[in-house]
Design a protein around this nucleic acid. Sequence first.
DNA 1: TGAAATGTTGGGGCG
DNA 2: ACGCCCCAACATTTC
Length: 480
Amino acid sequence: MAKPVIYWFRQDLRTDDLPGLNAAAASGRPLIACYIFDEASPGDLATGEASHWWLHHSLAAHSTQLDAHGGRLLLLKGPARSELVELVRSVDAEAVYCSRCYEPWAAALEEDLHATLREAGVAFKRYPGSLLFEPEAIRTQSDGPYKVFTPFWKACLQQAAPAPAAPRREALDFHADTPEGLSLEALALTPKNPDWAAGWKKLWTPGAEGARSTLQHFLKHSIDNYARGRDHPHLNATSHLSPHLHFGEISPRQVWHAVHAHCDGEPTLREQRNKFLSELGWREFCYHLLHHFPTLPEASFKAQFEHFPWLGDADALRAWQRGRTGYPIVDAGMRELWQTGYMHNRVRMIVASFLTKHLLIHWQRGEAWFRDTLVDADLANNVCGWQWVAGSGADASPYFRIFNPTLQGKKFDAEGDYVRRWVPEIKALPDKYIHEPSAAPGDVLEQAGVRLGDTYPAPIVEHKAAREAALAAYAAVKQG
DNA sequence: TGAAATGTTGGGGCG
DNA sequence: ACGCCCCAACATTTC
């Protein structure tokens, strides 16, 4: 009987447009499809429970999809290196195929497996599929990595357009003698006692089919006003593709081509299309940066920020995490995150600016919280985004750009719809004060049933003083 | 993919 | 009529 080959699913839980899977199928060998739930290898950079909830349902959907192809998904749990080596031995595999990952720990794991398996005479084959452009393909004229987004994305767009998504393979030949492995339940990815994610299945549909319908919904309803709408959180005009992209349920290449197919030939959609594709570009930029600068999760990209005088106020961090800062737009965002595993992008910038600049808390505390609570928790995007906001990153927001949370609320949530949804205890306040309860006259507060410091927190910091303290801290660092 | 401070201009009230 | 002041409104600079 022919030796099997293993396809090791990682952050690529789909069967369409998957070069590695196509290559494995083309080998002519019977296929064993496996997924290894590995909390050990990422070390301190592991994703949290919200992301695990998504993974559970994505794996369920993926299993179903593989069933439809006549196969099944072997589930394992443990350090990927030892689990994979043991699997190769036990089934006498000829080769292991996978899609490349870009987290520093994952890249190191690939190197290790390549060497370890070669010694055993087993090929370890790694394919692209999760990015539009491989990091090695985008270099500056002096052959270095780009550190500024605009020239980076320009260089990407000058490359040959990403190849059309590979057609779905109709037939996958699965190995008859696949080990039993673990049940999905045995991975214990979903919360119990309490099941805080009980309502999430109404919000999200993990899996390739959900990814496809999310994309179609976005193209049908939101892309025509994306450039402006994306900044107004109550409009929900963003794509909501981030978790689907993170888990590889849809490839950026599939998204790229679907967006072009929808928009090209309609001149009025050109600006919207380019704006959205540039957001895919930011994802590329973050992945490439993390590849070229693997210390990005631990260290500031700009060295002088290593000496920044961060504060460690545990009470302030707690108030931020739980949405009790007294700034409605910040609290609304943090509660949306806690309750749904997601936060609108505009609001992510506002809450991140607030943590790092108003509270002077290290961006890593915020990054860790997002990584634990977001269903789309993605190391590259998360670390890159936090360093960008903090001012310590590549092509970062300048240090003096400090969002005024009240003004941001008034500008992007003018009617207060977003705030009222997530901070219901102040919803009776008139629009004029919905982003600034502390400025409301006593009788207005009373009539709205708001008692500051009781039913809703008074601001934990005063904006003007916090802004000046942040500028002073940054000035001290700047002088080095 | 900011906000605040500072500078400039021009209309209108007023003595 | 004229100069003066005030202060929006807008532009520029600074953080």
